[in-house]
Design a protein around this nucleic acid. Structure first.
Length: 626
DNA sequence: AGCCATATAT
């Protein structure tokens, strides 16, 4: 019945267009615009034109919205022409609507032409033009217009600032914008506030962002998300999680963006248990691609590939980031074959790989010693996906060659590069020198790095380790002296482990943990059993000024060993012992963990700053190659 | 008008 009536109505409407009564014509025109019936509205507009009738600005603005909704560029231009026919000049309101239309169609040049020709420009006109530039990353233009508008005496509003903040090109500009915001009394607006927090966080001045947050009397979920996201992205996961709790207590229900930041914090702190709770929680929300990608990454970086694969398989939508995350995750966890297989299936049935996907693929090859495959993928990037290799890919290639012991080839590769080799490339090569104990090259490369960055403590430490490894104690002393002279200190080793919803942290030789006596007792028993199966403490990396037995003692209390024994005591036998480290694992602890996994029949995962070690049955997933 | 996800090296 309803549809029958509708048919009659439509027929009547169609007939009306061809009547010549102007007021009926215009009513029908308005109604078509409101109903977003574009093609018939256009017909109506043309017939109005034939009768020399004009509609009012509001009606035209409805028609323009209709064009935007249908993404009808040509019709939009026709409407513009119609409005301006017979020398008419649209009022500012209508010009703004037209301006907005060109911006929505991303026709920036047309928008700018109209903007320049407008007789009067109000704050909406300026803001529309500014946000068009800022959305298209024309940062200079956007910032320039903000200055011009003020010169012409137009006061920017909160819309203007929240658009322009996104293209802020540095801290200095940011501070200027911030003072402008205060000057115009816009600093209490939630939109401006969240944008300010976000930009401070992006420029690394999180504490200033936090001040903006703290000045807030009333805020909304997005302001909370901005500050929590800021902490999560700047490696300050604990604070992100604390604030999240405060937000929940304040009565704001978490949305997808909030949980994405929480997951990112979990990822940084390797809090697998908490991550799992977030997983359970997010299933109640509408599925969100970004959130799922963060979940996937969390499982990968917490070393639980089973759960990561499960999430990946179940995702209703997967984009290039999902695939890249999974490939890199498999690679970092030593599952090279799986990583490369997944890449092959991405090529045949997934999204087109991007720059970052290829970094993951090359990483997989370099860490598994697959030199030929690495070369193949490196060379195929341009041909298959039109990706120009960049510094990151060069870095992987140097790593690939260096790790495989082809140090000469690695140097030749570096020297042939189009770009000047940067400090990262030299660091990678230095790492290869350490693995292959090439002292001479290490010294050469180390000097290169210190030329570029004289205070680089990592390089001094690596050099001293390399000297120690070849028993060149005088050189070790010399390096240490330079370090002392420069006031450089080695960051103390720290490992942590999640148990009973708490994080237990261990520092080198730290005796403050409540269970430390039990741990030390268990450790000495363990050491005895390990020695029986052939464990020999490797004291090469211990400070040179200790005597033999003291060296072994220092080794015993390496933070990861303490954490392993803590896990042995507390974590149920069938569960994986998961440990996170702030420094890379040393050879001795690596051997210790391998033998431990064998004699105790336990699965241990240790995440260091760059990769994972899965120890099972006396073997490590890194293949002793790290 | 504002918030959330992927990569090399140390």
């Amino acid at each position: 019945m309803k549809s029958h009536l509708k048919t009659i109505a439509t027929r009547t409407a169609r007939a009306l267009i061809f009547t010549s009564n102007p007021s009926i014509l215009i009513d029908e025109f308005i109604s078509l615009c409101h109903r977003r019936e574009l093609s018939r509205a256009m017909e109506a507009m043309n017939s109005l034109q034939r009768h020399g009738i004009r509609a009012d600005a509001v009606t035209y603005s409805e028609l323009i919205k209709c064009c935007v909704a249908h993404r009808a560029i040509e019709q939009g231009r026709a409407v513009h022409k119609h409005i301006c026919s017979n020398g008419h000049t649209p009022q500012t309101f209508l010009n703004n609507v037209l301006l907005n239309m060109y911006v929505k169609f991303n026709l920036l040049a047309d928008a700018r032409n109209l903007f320049d020709e407008m007789a009067e420009r109000n704050v909406v006109s300026w803001t529309t033009m500014i946000s068009a530039y800022s959305n298209n990353k024309f940062n200079g233009e956007a910032l320039g217009l903000l200055v011009l508008m003020q010169r012409e005496g137009v006061r920017p509003n909160m819309f203007t600032f929240s658009s322009v903040l996104r293209v802020c090109d540095g801290l200095e500009t940011l501070r200027q914008l911030h003072s402008g915001i205060v000057k115009f009394g816009l600093d209490s607006d939630v939109f401006v506030r969240s944008a300010l927090i976000d930009v401070y966080a992006k420029w690394g001045e999180l504490d200033d962002g936090f001040c903006v947050f703290n000045e807030m009397v009333t805020g909304d979920l997005i302001v909370w998300n901005s500050i929590i996201g800021g902490f999560a992205q700047n490696g300050r996961g604990e604070e992100a999680l604390d604030l999240f709790k405060v937000m929940r207590t304040a009565g704001f229900p978490a949305n997808q963006a909030s949980l994405t930041s929480v997951l990112r914090a979990c990822t940084g702190l390797a809090l697998l248990e908490l991550g799992r709770q977030v997983h359970a929680h997010l299933l109640k929300l509408e599925s969100d691609l970004i959130l799922n990608n963060a979940l996937l990454d969390m499982y990968c970086k917490c070393g639980s590939l089973e759960e990561a694969s499960f999430v990946f398989e179940k995702m209703s939508e997967r984009d290039v980031i999902s695939w890249s995350t999974m490939i890199a995750g498999l690679a970092q966890n030593g599952q090279t074959t799986e990583a490369l297989e997944l890449f092959e299936s991405m090529k045949s049935s997934g999204p087109t790989p991007n720059y970052i996907t290829m970094v993951g693929v090359l990483f997989a090859c370099s860490h598994a010693g697959l030199v030929d495959d690495g070369w193949y993928y490196f060379r195929s990037m341009k041909r298959l996906f039109d990706i120009d290799p960049g510094r990151e890919h060069y870095g992987c290639m140097v790593d690939l060659l260096g790790r495989a012991g082809k140090l000469g080839e690695a140097i030749r590769f570096i020297l042939k590069l189009q770009c000047e080799p940067d400090i990262t490339i030299w660091r990678i090569l230095l790492g290869a020198c350490r693995v292959h104990r090439n002292v001479d090259l290490a010294i050469y490369v180390g000097k290169k790095i210190l030329e570029l960055e004289p205070g680089d403590e990592g390089t001094y430490i690596l050099l001293s380790n390399i000297y120690a490894n070849s028993q060149r104690w005088e050189d070790v002393v010399a390096v240490r002296k330079i370090m002392d002279g420069r006031g450089l200190k080695k960051e103390p080793g720290c490992s942590w482990i999640e148990f009973n919803k708490k994080v237990h942290a261990f520092m080198l030789g730290d005796k403050s943990h409540p269970q430390i006596d039990e741990i030390i007792m268990k450790m000495s028993l363990l050491m005895r059993r390990l020695m029986e199966v052939g464990y020999v403490p490797d004291t090469n990396f211990v400070l040179h000024d200790l005597e033999g037995e003291q060296k072994e003692d220092a080794l015993q209390y390496h933070s990861e060993k303490l954490a392993i024994v803590f896990g042995l005591i507390n974590i149920p036998k069938e569960k994986t012992i998961r440990i996170i480290k702030n420094l890379r694992i040393c050879c001795d602890c690596h051997t210790f963990a391998k033998l431990f996994s064998m004699i105790e029949n336990r699965h241990i995962v240790i995440r260091d700053p760059v990769r994972f070690h899965h120890f099972r049955n006396g073997v490590c997933s890194c293949g002793d190659y790290w």
